[in-house]
Design a binder for these strands. Structure first.
Lengths: 335, 335
DNA sequence: CTGTTAGCGCATTCAG
DNA sequence: CTGAATGCGCTAACAG
């Protein structure tokens, strides 16, 4: 199977009758190589199909021209963001490397681990997706998207307006006549989850509707962790007439639980989500949700990062907050 | 900004009062370290927040425990696949690295370039997404998903049943009474595109409906390349009553063009796609399409790869073909 | 049990 | 203009 153990610089050098140093110069476009040698080396490179090894190169030079997107796992949120980054990176000459250590469920500190493995070697800068804790002392420029800690950190951040978005969601339910509204919250350690809960409470308070604390649960943002709380909510003696789930994945889970329980959505219970990942439109029924401009957030994060990469340490405390909007589909009905 | 230039193994060694070799042994769980030293080194590692550098490690050892997914760019097709791989990898202890060189539009040979940069150093095995040409002489195990060349290659492949899927799509249009059906094909260099065209022609022939060659265009699978041909098609003196677009992205583009032209979908023209990426449900109107089991394809590719990684060179000529199905939404109507 | 010695593939001085 | 030497951070022999 290992017919060709990979062609390395030494192979090219030998074939072209020059030294590795010369090949290196050609590859990196350094001056000090005659036209003839240049051509010849290039020809051999093409023939042998040589490519510089990312790993080896990064060990010596501090420039790899690769930007890393670090995620806990590839789920709808991070992949949507990735598309935005990918689109935006086309205008630059950076390459994209998305990495996921095996940390499903987002064990605290995964981003530090991943960053440690890649930073200082493979990537010039990193976009951290939903990091639980933002490292202050990183060696490379970092931008955080939807971070745990909110705006108080030293690194630039990009996030959606979670507070207003949650208020909008709750107001929508309220405007439909719902009063007994449940909140299936996110991970309590995430700033976004806290803001969404706060928005929920603000909207309820503004409408002078008391919050029944029994209807406030934590769904952990993931299907596995949301299923239990959703079931509890829907099987309460006096169940809610509407559920605001803090993200689409738990909203979809809630609808699945309802279906299993023989309850109709939105007949028996209305459900609204948050994020507007593509999956939400595929759900049954199509999910009404709060749109988060995921592509734009990814593109913005990339712009910020590239700016830092180019212009040294500018805008260290930039915090971009992008607006959300209501997407009405079929999972909410008037009471 | 570079407060801490990254903590390396030597730092840990110094802080723990041992040599780097010992630290390496501890990190890699090698035998030959006393319990006490082990503990102490581990403690220092935790304190300093050390992580082994992927780049440096891969240079020396041939095992990185990382699997690479190589894509031309992060668009809906590849990211859906990525989700499937990500889900399946959870059951293993591999980490996931998705890489995109900057080759939008899929310049021929991008996969060789990317493979060259990562193989032999950073990753133990690779999943190639829609490679244009499959390298025979790679140094690491490789699985191709939806390859250009079809099943004739030496590497294992995973793909959807493009032929039957295309037939299904065409038959659906036919069953709705359409006769003047256009094909907005894919990239002519891709096997999948060829099979979809073949399926289209077979279904037309089976229904004894002649194909008007003026209605067969190449849309290149991408929005930018599909827009022109789609416009031509819809502005023909005698336009088609239905369009079979070879993938969802070009189908969505077709619907956008129609909207811009003031034509209603499906009122004036029916549109059917291929892939069933999540975006297709979000389109206006929701796109009727052929579902490709993207998640499952990703998971299957990973299983194949892990199998090769474990059990040396087994199943070199495995070719998995997964079934497609029709997803009816709102972009097709009876004539 | 631990430290010392070699490189892995590449980019960079610095001589020739 | 070119090549030989050096070291990036780490692991794999071996030596103590």
């Amino acid at each position: 199977m290992q017919a060709s153990p990979r062609v390395k610089m030494a192979d090219v050098a030998k074939a072209a009758g020059v030294s590795v140093a010369t090949v290196s110069k050609v590859v990196n476009g350094r001056y000090g190589v005659s036209e003839a040698t240049h051509e010849r080396v290039l020809a051999v490179i093409g023939e042998l199909g040589y490519e510089t090894s990312l790993g080896a190169r990064s060990l010596r030079s501090l420039q790899t021209n690769v930007i890393g997107v670090l995620v806990a796992e590839f789920e709808p949120f991070s992949t949507e963001l990735l598309k935005g980054v990918s689109d935006a990176i086309a205008a630059t000459d950076y390459e994209l490397l998305a990495y996921s250590g095996g940390h499903r469920g987002g064990a605290v500190g995964w981003e530090r681990r991943s960053l440690g493995r890649l930073a200082g070697s493979l990537i010039d800068g990193a976009i951290l997706v939903t990091p639980t804790v933002v490292e202050t002392g990183t060696s490379i420029p970092v931008v955080a998207v939807d971070p745990h800690t909110g705006d108080t950190t030293a690194v630039p951040t990009v996030e959606a307006d979670n507070l207003v978005g949650a208020r909008t969601a709750t107001e929508h339910l309220l405007s439909l006549g719902h009063r007994r509204i449940a909140l299936l919250g996110g991970r309590p350690d995430l700033e976004s989850a806290r803001l969404r809960e706060q928005g929920f409470r603000e909207a309820m308070a503004a409408a002078a509707v008391p919050v029944d604390e029994e209807l406030v649960r934590s769904g952990g943002y993931r299907p596995e962790t949301a299923e239990g709380p959703a079931t509890e909510l829907l099987t309460l003696p006096e169940p809610p007439t509407a559920v605001f789930a803090a993200n689409d994945l738990s909203a979809i889970t809630t609808m699945e639980v309802a279906a299993r329980l023989g309850q109709s959505v939105p007949g028996d219970v209305s459900v609204i989500g948050f994020d507007n990942v593509p999956e939400s439109a595929l759900a049954t029924p199509p999910l009404t949700t709060i749109q988060q401009p995921l592509h734009q957030m990814g593109a913005t994060a990339l712009d910020l990062l590239v700016g830092m990469l180019r212009g040294a340490a500018e805008g260290r405390a930039t915090h971009v907050r992008l607006p959300t909007s209501l997407v009405e589909r079929a999972s909410c009905a008037p009471l």
